[in-house]
Design a protein around this nucleic acid. Sequence first.
DNA 1: TCCAATCAATCAAACGATTGATTAGTTTTG
DNA 2: CAAAACTAATCAATCGTTTGATTGATTGGA
Lengths: 211, 211
Amino acid sequence: MEKTDKRTSILLAAEKLFASQGYEGTSTRQIANEAGANMSMINYYFGSKEGVFMEIMSNRIKGFRIALNSINGENITQLDKLKMVVDQYARRILDNITFHKMMHRELSLSQRPEMYDKLKDAMSQNLMVIERIVNEGIDQGMFRPVDVRMVIATIMGTITNVATAPSKITAGSKLDIKIPADREILTERLITYLKDLITTYLTPKNDTEHL
Amino acid sequence: MEKTDKRTSILLAAEKLFASQGYEGTSTRQIANEAGANMSMINYYFGSKEGVFMEIMSNRIKGFRIALNSINGENITQLDKLKMVVDQYARRILDNITFHKMMHRELSLSQRPEMYDKLKDAMSQNLMVIERIVNEGIDQGMFRPVDVRMVIATIMGTITNVATAPSKITAGSKLDIKIPADREILTERLITYLKDLITTYLTPKNDTEHL
DNA sequence: TCCAATCAATCAAACGATTGATTAGTTTTG
DNA sequence: CAAAACTAATCAATCGTTTGATTGATTGGA
C-alpha cells in the first residue's frame, strides 16, 4: 500500500501529458488533475510549470548517461566496439521512446536555451564516442575511409526513425511499437540489421570474413 | 514594388512562427503582428488559427508530391532508380528543413487527426515507392535479401538526422546548416554518401563493379 | 505529559494576463 | 453603390501563478 507522494505523482502526470500534448499544449490544471493534486502544488514543489519540465528532463538526462565510455576501454576490435555502442544506444532509445520524442521536439524548437544546451551536450557526448571509434578503426585500416559524420547520422537516424515513425506506416509490417512484446521484437530486428549494415559498409571488401 | 497581399503575408508569418515556436507556442496576435495585419484577418481568411496551420501544411504537402512514381517507369536498374529516389528525397527535405521539422513535430504529437492522416499518407506514399524498388531489386537478384523496412528507415532516418540535428554538433564539422552555401555542400555530401552506402550494402559482394 | 509553537503539505479561491475568436463599424475597390 | 478588405474594441475562456487559510504531524520547554 505504498502511496506515491504528490511530488512524484506530479512529475509522472506531467511527463505523460508533455509527451502526448507537448509543453505548451499542456496546462497546469491538466497536470494537477491527472496527478490528483492541487494546482498550487506545482509551484510549491517546482516553482513553475517550466520547473516541472526541467526536473523531468534533467532526471532523464542523468539516467541517459550511457556507459559508452567504458566500451572504449575494452580490449576488442573497433568493429566490436561499434556494435556494442549500437546495441546499447538502440535499446536505450527504444526503451524510452516518449522521452526521446520530447527531446527531439525540444531540440527542434529550442525555446528553453538552458535545456537545449543540456540536451545538445548529452547528445554530442554519445556522438563523440562513436566518432572516435570509427576514426580509430579507419586509422587502423580496419574500416574503409568513410564520411564519419554521415555514418553517425545513419546510426542515430535509423534508430530515431524506427523509434518515432508512425507504427504500421509500412504496409507489410504488422508490428505495433506500442505493444511491449512487439517493441522488443522490433528492437532486436533493428540491432541485427544495424550491426550487419555497419559491418558491410565499414569493412573493406577484400576482408576474409565478418558477421 | 509588388506588394504581397495580406492573405499570403499571414501565411508566411504564421509558417515562420510555427516553425520556430511550434503551433501552441504561437499566438494569433504574434502572427497578425508579424504579418502587419489585423488579428481578425486571420479568421476572415482562414476561419481559425488551425485553419491557417492546415492551409500551410496542405500547400506544402501538395508541393511535396515528389515525382517519385515517374522514376519507376524509367528503363534503368533498380539500383539507379533507388539512387534517383535518394537524390530527389534528400534535396527536397534539405530545401525545406523548417517544414520538415514542423511535420515531424505534428507526427510526434498527432493532436490534429486530420492533419496527422494527411502527413502519414504523404509519407507512406514515398515509402512504398522505395519499398517496391528494393523488393524488385531483391527479386531480380540484383540486391541482397535485406530487411527492406530497415533499409528505408536508414535512408529516411539519415536524411532526417542531417536535416534536423543541431548544426556543429560534430566537433570537427564547421558546416552550418543555416548558411545556404553550407547547406548546399552538406546536401551533396549527404547524397554522395547515401548512394555509396546503399550500393555497398545492397549489392552482393561478388559483383564486379559498382560506383 | 501536556501545551504551545512551528513546520511542511495541502486546499479553494482569486489574481492579472493572455488566449482565440467575434462584433460592429469603417475604408477601399471594382 | 455594393462587395470585399480592413480596423478597433471587446468577448468569454483559459492561462500560469499567487494568496491566505487550514490541516496534521513534529518539536521543545514547563
